[in-house]
Design a protein around this nucleic acid. Structure first.
Lengths: 235, 235
DNA sequence: TCTATTCGCAAACTCTGTTCGCGAACTATG
DNA sequence: CATAGTTCGCGAACAGAGTTTGCGAATAGA
């Protein structure tokens, strides 16, 4: 009963006991196997039995490394946050923030299961902490108070995740259903106003890659003010 | 086998067959029961058996009204979109957009299960279509092209949902864990830089209610330009 | 009344996360 | 080297999930 937990935080909990039979696998190994399965077959394929099979063990064995499946998902989320490559602040905080955003977008594209996870269950692990530290470092010279900076970071993450979600859902069954219903509404003649509002459909859709940086730049500027002439926090 | 589907869209699929034994319940009734359960006990409590029990029927009966559980979730999502009260555009599109956002936030607070749903599986049903039409109506005088307006609407929804998610998760176990880990990182002395960046913690945290309108206003302004002097879509 | 069709739903199937219990394996001690 | 103490691996089992099947019951139209 006296399992070695430190306040129920897996990040502080010792991986293996110092005595007794040593474990055959590491927490990182279990995490990597889970990420591999999720990358290949999606998040719902990450079942305890499947992860165990990937490792060549029994399902119940995983509970020696993790208290619950949700905890395993937390490990997965934080592990891919190690894929950031964070350079020293350049002095242009807006450009540095956009760089963070674009790296986040790249990671989210690399791991299609990530976006729903980071939105619905935000996790702060060791690697996530490194990113947070970097962002605060980048914003250090900015006069806004800490709360505003944290809000800006949260907004950056939210916009990026939703943007990636829409990109990844491109052509999915759900998205095609929505488009089909919109098409029906416009075509059927029951929504003449909507049809008029959507009349001049753009012939050329802009490249999503460029749209993202533009949107993020505008939003961050709106939140923190133009980079050259920062505004005070209170009006 | 010849079930009356119209392109797999539940919004166009006839609720009941014209012949044969009539159904005892309506699709709206099933949806309302599901929403009631979710409001009371959360989304994971919305199981087919539980919804059936709430209606006093058997679990398998629900499949006469819905093809799958996900479809039931779509019905739930669209049904609460009926709670908007959309007035005619006032002429101030920014104010009208903020009004839509605050109503969305109110709905999200009223139904704590909604936020994860609308983010991870965006659904366009009849009521959602009404909201979309309203937003396009509000933005009709704005010179931006349609794609930019749709992006602005998507961003509005994303920010609002994430904001509501954070509000609703206030004091949750997961959030307390994150705070505890951050506390540990700052206290333990292993992250002196992070500790310094977080040094001057604000003594007074602003009211989230006011923060939301402020953030949304800034973001929408950043995306669509200041309301009095709109900017062209391309630079 | 008879036929065609749909509805309601108990039962079963597969899959899920999780717990229990015990033999096996290892460390530390005497 | 033996023995005690502890942990690990994991087969088996449990509760609950979504969904399918099959059939008796109910209704509309002829």
């Amino acid at each position: 009963m006296a399992q070695g937990r430190s306040g129920d935080l897996i990040w502080l909990r010792p991986e293996h006991a110092a005595v007794g039979r040593p474990a055959q696998r590491s927490r990182a190994e279990v995490t990597a196997a889970s990420v591999a399965i999720a990358d290949r077959d999606g998040l719902e394929a990450v079942s305890m039995r499947r992860v165990a099979a990937e490792l060549g063990t029994g399902a119940a064995s995983l509970y020696r490394y993790v208290e619950t499946r949700d905890e395993l998902l937390d490990l997965m989320t934080d592990s891919v946050a190690a894929e950031y490559s964070l350079a020293a602040p350049s002095g242009d905080w807006l450009a540095d923030l956009v760089s963070v955003g674009e790296q986040a977008r790249a990671i989210l594209r690399r791991h299609p299961w990530l976006a729903p996870l980071v939105i619905t269950r935000p996790v702060l692990g060791p690697h996530g902490l490194t990113v947070l530290e970097h962002v605060l470092d980048v914003l250090a010279p900015h006069p806004a108070d800490i709360a505003a900076k944290l809000e800006a970071f949260a907004t950056l993450n939210a916009i990026t995740a939703v943007f990636a979600l829409n990109e990844l859902a491109g052509g999915s069954a759900a998205q095609r259903r929505n488009a089909a219903y919109l098409q029906h509404a416009v075509t059927s003649g029951e929504h003449p106003r909507l049809a008029r509002l959507l009349a001049r459909a753009p012939a050329t859709t802009a490249d999503p890659g460029d749209r993202y940086a533009d949107i993020l730049t505008r939003v961050m500027t709106g939140l923190l003010g133009p980079p050259s002439r920062p505004r005070p926090a209170m009006g």
